[in-house]
Write a protein that binds this DNA or RNA. Structure first.
Lengths: 162, 162
DNA sequence: TGGAGGATGTAGCCAAGGCTACATTTGAGA
DNA sequence: TCTCAAATGTAGCCTTGGCTACATCCTCCA
C-alpha cells in the first residue's frame, strides 16, 4: 500500500497537519526533550540554590521540587554519571562546566518564557506554572520570536505614555 | 492593540522566581501534566486516524509515532484500562466518549498553539515541532491569551491591506 | 565532649514507556 | 480453499523517576 517513493498523491493533509514523515520526527524530538526536562530542572535549581545560599544540598532540592530526598539523591547520581554535577558523599552538590552552561541557558530561557507570558496578558500565577512545563519545549527560533513579541509590546506600552 | 499585563513593578525576588511554596506546586503540576502527555498524544492521533482512514490500527499508530508496535499495544492496554479507548484482540482501536472528548480538546489546543506560533513568526517546521511539546503544558488561561494574540495579529494584517 | 536530630545514603518496591524476539491470528490473493 | 505475509499479541529486558523504610553519618549545642 505505501511505497517508500512518495512522489505525488499528497495523502490527506487533515487540517494543516504535517506530513507523516515529519510528524514522526516531531514526536521523536519531543520524546528526546522529555528525557532532558528533569536534568534541566535540577541544574537550574542547583544554580539558584548556589547563587542564593552558597551551596546546594539534596534536602533543599527535595523541598523545592516537592519530591522525597531519596529521589533527589538517585537523580543527582544520574546527573553526576552524565557529567552535569559533582558531589561527594555527605557533601553539597556542585555544577560542572557543562552543568553550569545548561543551567544558565535554562534559566535565561525560563525567564524569557515567563516574561513573554506576562507580556501577552497571562496572570502571574499561571505564567509561572505554565512556563515550568513549556520552557523545555521552546526551540531557539521560537524563543527569538517570544523575545520579538516582548519587545514590541513593551515598546508600544512606553510609546503610549505611562 | 495587544492586551498587556504587568504594568507595575513586580517583586523581583531572585530573578523573578515564585515563592518556594508556589514553586513546589508548579513542579507538582508539571509532573502531573507529564503523565498525561502520552495519553493525549495517543487519543489525538487515534481520532485523526479514524477521521481520515475510518479506523485506527496499532501498526499505524506505531508508524506515526516512530515507536515499536509492542510499545503501542502496551500503551493502548493502559488507555483501555483508564477508560479512554476500547479494543478487542486483533481488532481496531476506538475511542470512548471520554477519549473522544480529550481528543477533540487536545486537537483544538494543538491547532491553536500551531496557529499562534505561526502568527508570531515561527517557521512552519519549527512551529509543528515545538507545538508537539508545548501543547501539553498550556493552560486554558494561556490558551485564551494565545487566541487573543492571533486575533490581534490577523486583524492588524488585514487592516493594513496585506 | 557526647548525643540527638537532621541530612545523607541504601535497599527494594512500583509503574511507565521504551526495546527485541518470538508466537499467534487474520485476511487477501493465487 | 489454503497459504503466507502482515498485523497483533506475549514475554522479558532495560531505564527513569517516583515512593517508603531503614541505616549511617555529621554537626551543633547543652
Amino acid at each position: 500500500m505505501i511505497e517508500m517513493g512518495e512522489t505525488e498523491a499528497e495523502p490527506h493533509q487533515l487540517g494543516g497537519m504535517p506530513a507523516p514523515d515529519q510528524q514522526v520526527e516531531n514526536f521523536r524530538h519531543t520524546r528526546r526533550a522529555r528525557r532532558t526536562e528533569i536534568a534541566e530542572d535540577y541544574v537550574e535549581l542547583i544554580a539558584d540554590l548556589i547563587d542564593s545560599g552558597g551551596e546546594a544540598r539534596a534536602v533543599d532540592i527535595a523541598r523545592r521540587l516537592g519530591v522525597s530526598h531519596a529521589t533527589v539523591i538517585k537523580t543527582v547520581g544520574r546527573l553526576q554519571r552524565d557529567g552535569l554535577v559533582v558531589t561527594k558523599p555527605y557533601r553539597a552538590i556542585f555544577l560542572t562546566d557543562e552543568g553550569r552552561r545548561i543551567a544558565i541557558w535554562s534559566r535565561q530561557r525560563h525567564e524569557l518564557v515567563v516574561k513573554f507570558l506576562l507580556a501577552i496578558g497571562v496572570s502571574k500565577e499561571v505564567a509561572y506554572a505554565d512556563a515550568e512545563g513549556i520552557e523545555h519545549h521552546v526551540s531557539a527560533e521560537t524563543l527569538a520570536a517570544f523575545e520579538r513579541v516582548v519587545g514590541e509590546i513593551n515598546g508600544r506600552r512606553s510609546a503610549s505614555g505611562h
